[in-house]
Amino acid sequence: MSSAIVETTNLTKRYGRHIVVENLNLHIPAGCVYGFLGPNGAGKSTTMKMLLSLIQPSTGQVELMGRPMSRSSRRELLGDIGSLIEAPPGYAHLTGAENMALVKRLLGLTTEQIDVAVRAVRLQDQMTKQVRDYSLGMKQRLGIAMALAREPKLLILDEPTNGLDPAGIEEMRTLLRRLADDGVTVMVSSHLLGEIDKTADMLGILSGGRMIFQGSRAELMAASTPDVVFTCTDPHAAAAVLRGHGAQLTEADEVTVPGLDDRQTAGVVAALVGQGVGVFGVRRDEQTLEEVFMSLTAGGRL
């Protein structure tokens, strides 16, 4: 899990004066599911396109599987990388089977490799239909089958759950997990944490083109500073005393104070006691990962 299959150094893309991705240092360990999160427009697709050399970085480097990714090396490296960027690919006037036949020809694959990929996304009963008659979810699954057929070492999927119903999303999670268990490294982007947080071993959070967090789920929780909740004898007085700290009175007559570390929390307790307010409960607010994600991406902090 420690050797990186994807490594970027100060990866930056700018168009004129507009910076889309800034100094990105991605580190994706081999064999993991890497959840690449961020709101729409954060630069996720641009980053993925730079990884695939579909667009060239303004500055910075990309290294994939230990080799620099460039226009001269990309065709060699791309044989081991399956990808699905933005909308699912597929020729609408052809059937699913004909689309897979194209992939087979282009990549020199066997019929068995194609069949395995099609079965993995459970599309085997829809292969005689023209892709124009597919639902978005079916197109998405065909796109993933096309990416999977080459038995990639690295799979780069941009918002693969778009257009999938809840059952489809769950199926996708299971598929990604199974691929990772088989040794495939999966990088999957989403603007919704809930869609991938259960699947991802590692998370990278992008906001405004900058990486604001990269690490495990536990590290993400640890990196955030949940509010401190005080239970005391006189909540109204306590809220007044702590107004300078941004304190708020809750409906349960508790006082929450944001952004306190442990030392500051001790100081606040002392201040309350000094003002004659008895403190009989101090605890950290329980935040869901979603709340942490939302607060990080909204504030662009960390």
Binding site: L52, R75, I81, I85, L106
Partner: peptide, 8 residues
């Protein structure tokens, strides 16, 4: 994107 991400 798919065409340009192929090894061809």
């Amino acid at each position: 994107n798919a065409l340009m991400s192929s090894p061809a």
